[in-house]
């Protein structure tokens, strides 16, 4: 029986490794911090597996071992005479545990120190401020020249190889910022400022996720992360620092009018228009993002309609209320938002 199950073990291991190439993978080595942590995790995994194997071997041996018998066939309470080697073995075992624990502590300490030493000066890094809300991320890029600043939501663009110093705040409850491919977690605590250094090494598309339970839609609080070459990042920055494109036809004009004079603009802002609400995601270049509502829906015309028509459907409990738009209003607002590339 045991023999038959044994071949399944490698299969299991392979199965657990499948996610390594994913956009949200704790085994990811796409950022400097992430790689160090992944190495440390590997050391811990090997060490603990080794010790677990020895424990399992001892338990198995104990279960299989027969007690010694005297000449008359009665069990010998004194044992089978293997006590002496066993005692030596146990002493060696205790020493190994002590050394092993010390080694793991040392590895953890050294990784921690080397990560801290490798941190570049925050003053020279790209400055990003992220404010967490139930349940979305407000993202601002700060530059020395404020006209270059960018405000966006639920997405993060990073130039590869450039350290990014992320300042983290929360508006309501405790959240946790986690892009597992790039770095470890960092909590966002109301009334406090925490920070994190991201040093992406590889271009690609990753997914961040709130890692501290923060209410009903905690699972739908994701962050699209794009690591791109410097030139591509600079293009993205320049495009996103610019005001929104003005409406071009009658339909988008009607959507613009509704958006800027009605419920939408009470909470949402679109740069370059009178819409200047500050409590909801900035929609200046909404249609250029990969998803709607913090990773809840992929960006597409159908999902834009769905979200505006009934925001409480796909993400119940979120702060966007049901507006009750008429069909022509919905059509116009959706067309306008879709034009905000």
């Amino acid at each position: 029986m045991r023999r038959r199950l044994l071949p399944l073990l490698p299969l299991l291991l392979v199965g657990s490794a499948c996610s390594v190439d994913g956009i949200q993978s704790v085994g990811g080595r796409d950022g400097q911090g992430g790689a160090a942590i992944a190495d440390l995790f590997g050391i811990f995994l090997v060490a603990t597996l080794l010790f677990a194997a020895v424990v399992a071997a001892f338990l198995g041996a104990a279960a299989l071992r027969r007690r010694g018998r005297r000449a008359d066939g009665i069990e010998d309470p004194e044992g089978s005479g293997t006590e002496r080697p066993l005692k030596t073995g146990l002493i060696v075992w205790i020493a190994a545990v002590a050394i092993g624990l010390f080694g793991l502590t040392l590895a953890s300490h050294l990784t921690d120190r080397s990560m801290a030493r490798a941190l570049p000066d925050p003053a020279s890094a790209l400055r990003i401020e992220i404010v967490a809300n139930q349940w979305w991320w407000d993202v601002r890029y700060h530059f020395r020249d404020p006209s270059r600043d960018v405000r966006t939501a639920n997405e993060l663009h990073l130039p590869a190889g450039v350290p990014a110093h992320v300042t983290l705040k929360s508006n309501d409850v405790i959240h946790s910022f986690w892009v597992p491919n790039l770095a470890g977690k960092q909590d966002l605590i109301p009334g406090r400022i925490t920070d994190l250094m991201l040093i992406p090494r590889k271009t690609g598309v990753y997914r961040g996720q709130c890692a501290e339970f923060c209410g009903m839609q905690h699972a739908h609080m994701a962050l699209d992360v794009t690591v791109e070459p410097r030139e591509a990042f600079e293009r993205w920055r320049a495009h996103n620092a610019a005001p929104a494109v003005p409406p071009t036809n009658a339909l988008t004009r009607a959507g613009y009018d509704y958006f800027t004079t009605r419920e939408c603009s009470t909470c949402h802002a679109i740069a370059g228009t009178p819409a200047s609400g500050q409590v909801a995601p900035d929609l200046t270049h909404f249609a250029s993002r990969r998803s709607i509502a913090a990773g809840t829906l992929p960006m597409s015309r159908g999902h834009i309609y769905a979200w505006i028509a009934d925001p409480q459907g796909p993400k119940p409990g979120n702060a966007m209320p049901y507006i009750g738009l008429e069909a022509d209003e919905l059509h116009a607002v959706a067309a306008y938002l879709e034009s905000l590339k």
């Binding site: 004079t261 009605r262 419920e263 009470t266 209320p321 049901y322 507006i323 009750g324």
Partner: peptide, 8 residues
């Protein structure tokens, strides 16, 4: 009126 919903 028209700036927030009636429910709000």
């Amino acid at each position: 009126e028209g700036r927030i919903t009636e429910q709000q």
